[in-house]
Computed example of a mutant assay.
Amino acid sequence: MKSMVEIAHAFLEPCLHRQAVCVDATFGNGKDTAFFVECGARLVYAFDIQKELIEKRRGDFDERVVELIVDSHAHLDRYVDKPVDAIVFNFGFCPHGDETITTMPKESVEAVRKAIGRLRKKGRMALVLYPHLFGEQESDALERVLRRIDPHVATIQRVESVNTKAGPFVLLVEKKAGETGRESETI
């Protein structure tokens, strides 16, 4: 069976082409950024608040293709001014890292709102949510926001394991309509 990250990647892959613009909103160890690059994306914006994680992988990516940004994903509108084909979030903490440095509900909601506004029509976004210190509040807040989106603007699905209470799950979003380039007025 596929992991939630593999499900997210399979969902995003149809949007990836030679001119694709992507956002890895939670860089961590850089695996999602590497996935976008391997799939041929033209430009990847990769965000993390932990400078040491960005610096550890800086030499692994062509700076003409990957823009590594030490800042919160809540500020993605300061850096991303193009319509985006694919966006991925992994909410929680960096695996094998400091578990006290986590994504936070308020910033995550702000980031997702801005990310939806940047998605082009037929663009896709995957949100992988892991259990962590603020995980329950974060997932509740994100789902409240996503439930308010008009189904004519985006289709949203939740994928989860039935027999694990605290396991990760993924929310998959495909934009159907709406203006690209600013926060969606529907949320």
Rank of each mutant, 00 (worst) to 15 (best):
residue 37 V to G: 08
residue 129 L to C: 13
residue 109 V to L: 12
residue 37 V to Q: 15
residue 104 M to R: 15
residue 37 V to Y: 15
residue 79 Y to A: 09
residue 154 A to C: 10
residue 70 V to N: 02
residue 104 M to D: 06
residue 163 N to Q: 09
residue 46 A to M: 00
residue 111 A to V: 01
residue 105 P to D: 12
residue 48 D to K: 00
residue 105 P to L: 11
residue 79 Y to E: 09
residue 94 C to P: 07
residue 45 Y to D: 15
residue 25 A to Q: 09
residue 46 A to I: 00
residue 27 F to T: 08
residue 42 R to A: 15
residue 102 T to F: 03
residue 134 F to W: 14
residue 65 V to T: 15
residue 102 T to E: 03
residue 78 R to V: 04
residue 83 P to Y: 01
residue 35 F to A: 08
residue 133 L to A: 12
residue 152 H to L: 13
residue 32 D to S: 14
residue 161 S to F: 14
residue 115 A to V: 05
residue 86 A to N: 02
residue 27 F to E: 11
residue 27 F to K: 14
residue 93 F to W: 15
residue 55 E to R: 02
residue 48 D to E: 01
residue 33 T to W: 11
residue 78 R to A: 07
residue 81 D to S: 11
residue 121 K to N: 13
residue 130 Y to K: 10
residue 29 N to H: 14
residue 33 T to E: 12
residue 114 K to A: 05
residue 146 L to Y: 12
residue 111 A to R: 01
residue 26 T to H: 05
residue 155 T to I: 03
residue 121 K to V: 11
residue 88 V to K: 04
residue 53 L to T: 01
residue 24 D to W: 05
residue 102 T to G: 02
residue 38 E to R: 15
residue 92 G to C: 10
residue 67 E to D: 00
residue 154 A to Y: 12
residue 144 R to W: 10
residue 61 F to R: 13
residue 29 N to W: 08
residue 93 F to S: 04
residue 158 R to Q: 10
residue 127 L to E: 09
residue 48 D to S: 03
residue 97 G to I: 02
residue 80 V to S: 08
residue 72 S to M: 06
residue 59 G to H: 11
residue 26 T to W: 07
residue 89 F to Q: 06
residue 116 I to S: 06
residue 144 R to L: 07
residue 51 K to L: 03
residue 129 L to H: 04
residue 156 I to W: 05
residue 118 R to E: 07
